[in-house]
Design a protein around this nucleic acid. Structure first.
Ligand SMILES: [Mn+2]
Ligand SMILES: [Mn+2]
Ligand SMILES: [Zn+2]
Ligand SMILES: [Zn+2]
Lengths: 178, 178
DNA sequence: CCCATACTGATAACGATTCTCATTATCCTA
DNA sequence: TAGGATAATGAGAATCGTTATCAGTATGGG
């Protein structure tokens, strides 16, 4: 069961609860927040950080680092991979981006400004990622944890399966007409 | 937030729903199953596969591959890392072991003979892993997925937090007595 | 006992990420 | 606006878990 999870240089289409804006205004607020955060702790801001943030917000969705690197380099070819990794980690720390590790061994980041917590449905056929929120599940998680003496700090819930599109395009085991 | 998830050469203690037996009898049935499975597809069985299966079942819990390698080598020093990886993948295929990938970047395997599906609570303090089953959550997952056109094939639910022991051993933010 | 073939061990290769370190940029101060 | 302390960068080496390669070994049916 290989998982593809597209989103390299391709364009997503309906990814569910995705942010509404095209990322332009979001990028601006993100940059402001980052600026404040950096100043607070005596860090400096740089041209490449700006480029990376803007590109990242321009992509939207669940962005793999190598995809981001590619896009950033289209704007400024000499930005290094290391810097992109460093910057994304920074964005995560200051709450502008959320790192996600699905089952394909690479970290993706998704913008988080103005977005709430959610979990993911991942299509094992086409890699489509759909987001969902379910308050009942969240509550049950807390309750189950508590019943075992745990206090939940974070959780990971990923549902893997086939989306409607992929199921339709498949023979499937049913209707075995000769 | 570094996650430790012990279980290398250390001994677990109460790991929750863990298998009851000490792994001796379990290992036997596992070996039988493996034998049948291998024969069915014209594969051969080998001394090292036996050693690995027995060691694996002797350890119980959620075994990281490198920990398994260490133990196996204590019995037969010339078993190679590659063989252990290959064998564990085999056990997974034939349903004797389940691979788990928690958030620390290494694959663990847990024995699965006679065990049912479950999810995990992971202590971010001491690495303790507690297992749980919750039918309501399972149902809700299926329902949520369906409402988005997905048919769930598998899922991953991991709750990260601090166990009772770890919370007790901590100052905590409450009771700020001067 | 023979042979086809699966399995093994040693080690190279891999992919994602981090580290190192010499160089450069930022920004605060005088 | 120049100087300097120090943070950030780029390039590539290094790391880590895992897989691939490939020549040599073991297994099991005949
Ligand atoms: Mn998301
Ligand atoms: Mn388990
Ligand atoms: Zn699909
Ligand atoms: Zn703990």
């Amino acid at each position: 069961m290989r998982i593809v999870i597209s989103m390299g240089s391709r364009r997503r289409s309906g990814t569910g609860v995705e942010a509404a804006t095209d990322g332009k205004g979001e990028a601006r607020t993100a940059l402001l927040r980052l600026g404040a955060w950096l100043e607070e702790r005596g860090l400096k801001h740089s041209r490449q950080r700006d480029v990376i943030v803007e590109t990242f917000y321009g992509m939207g969705g669940h962005v793999p680092v190598d995809g981001l690197v590619a896009r950033v380099r289209a704007l400024d070819a000499r930005v290094s991979v290391a810097t992109v990794y460093r910057t994304m980690k920074l964005l995560a720390e200051c709450g502008i981006a959320v790192p996600r590790r699905f089952d394909d061994g690479q970290t993706r980041y998704e913008p988080s400004t103005g977005r709430s917590h959610h979990d993911h449905l991942i299509c094992t056929g086409c890699g489509r990622i759909v987001e969902f929120e379910n308050e009942r599940i969240e509550e049950l998680q807390i309750r189950v944890a508590r019943s075992h003496g745990f206090e939940v700090e974070s959780h990971k819930l990923e549902l893997y399966g086939r989306c409607d599109r992929c199921r339709r395009a498949e023979p499937g085991a049913r209707d075995p007409r000769p």
